[in-house]
Design a protein around this nucleic acid. Structure first.
Lengths: 208, 208
DNA sequence: CTGTTTTTGTACAATCTGGTACAATAATAG
DNA sequence: CTATTATTGTACCAGATTGTACAAAAACAG
């Protein structure tokens, strides 16, 4: 151990909590998108003044990229939690989709869909870093689902002639659709219907 | 007949072609999104100066909404063309998805995905008009697909126990996924794989 | 108490943005 | 040729936006 983090650093103490400020900044971007969120908006959302924002998180784009990174990391964790748990495939899938929906349709706030798909998609064409982060995140879910489906296939939870790779693409597409439709204003009921149909289709039925 | 449109109206002739200008403006929005596209960008893209833009199309938001409307109308036409044609379901689906992909991945330009999903999604939370247009457009495809699948079901093109309504939601989700993944940088090959899997799954197989 | 360190908050500069006023221009109508 | 009409292009405005400079403030070190 080289050194303990001192209880209090050296100079004037920070007036903000970094994690909380990042969450508030993320919510601001989540609502209005990257370009339509000004530094004043971020300042108001976080309670930090602009020089503090710069000192803490760099410029707007660096902050945004960091938020994308964090969101992806949290998603990866949630995915792993549900897919590595010992529960039937249909239950794991349903629980994960429901978890996503609870983020996409927050209580006491407007429907906002997925942070990545709802905001990074727009920036992705002109910003290679955003595009890369977005692509990696989407692929992360697809691969995790593929692994879970392969396991299900091996363990006889899926029909013998089912193709886990193809089903993982479908299951991934369903998540994209939830992300899009939630932000487009579809009701929770309508989205639950999609979840049910998808789980049934992936786990065995023929869409009935 | 009340009156023929006069060959030439009255005053100084317009220096632009309205349809072409709208297409160029749409492409500008398509690339950078609504908020990041300035009036100067639109002016440069269309070759029209700003006062002409205003006179012709109103302010930025009115122009954007009109472009969303046109895009939806063109999509609806393309959907009807493929689904009302006399061809097998699998072919109709494949052709439609390929048509979408050819718009999402233009030759000689960056991958841009779907104009609606790629740009309107971001604005949809704060702008009810955009949200409504977006929702209506997404629902339009779902319903058209549902009708086509019901016909296929009636005519024995689908398994007896298949559920056209559920499959329409899945087929619609696949289009959303193509729109998202194209803009996120996925290769045409990867997207073709999704199309193939989806068509197979919807039209009869079990994802094999 | 004095000096050092770090953050805060105000204030400011430069640029960009949406939107418009107005004269010049290019056509038709008679 | 003159009057009329509609569009163009320049120039401008007010406000927003990004980013930073700098003094005041709030802590610790000795």
């Amino acid at each position: 151990m080289v050194q303990n983090k001192p209880a209090r650093p050296r100079g004037r103490p920070r007036a903000y909590d970094a994690d909380q400020a990042l969450a508030r900044a993320r919510d601001a971007f989540w609502q209005a998108g990257f370009s339509a969120t000004s530094l004043d908006d971020l300042s108001a959302a976080t309670g930090m003044n602009r020089p503090s924002l710069y000192a803490a998180f760099g410029d707007k784009q660096r902050l945004y990229l960091e938020l994308l990174r964090r969101y992806t990391a949290a998603s990866d964790q949630a995915i792993a939690r549900e897919f590595e748990r010992d529960q039937p495939l249909a239950k794991a899938l349903t629980r994960f989709y429901q978890l996503a929906l609870s983020m996409y349709l927050p209580q006491g706030g407007p429907a906002r869909g997925c942070f990545l798909i709802g905001t990074a998609l727009t920036e992705a064409v002109d910003d290679p870093q955003v595009r890369e982060q977005l692509g990696a995140s989407l692929d992360g879910f697809r691969r995790a689902l593929e692994l879970r489906l392969k396991r299900a296939h091996d363990e006889g939870e899926l029909d013998r002639d089912a193709d886990p790779v193809a089903l993982a693409e479908i299951g991934s597409a369903v998540l994209h659709s939830l992300a899009v439709r939630a932000r487009a204003g579809d009701s929770r009921t309508a989205l639950n219907t999609l979840v049910k149909s998808a789980v049934r289709l992936i786990c065995g039925g023929k869409g009935g």
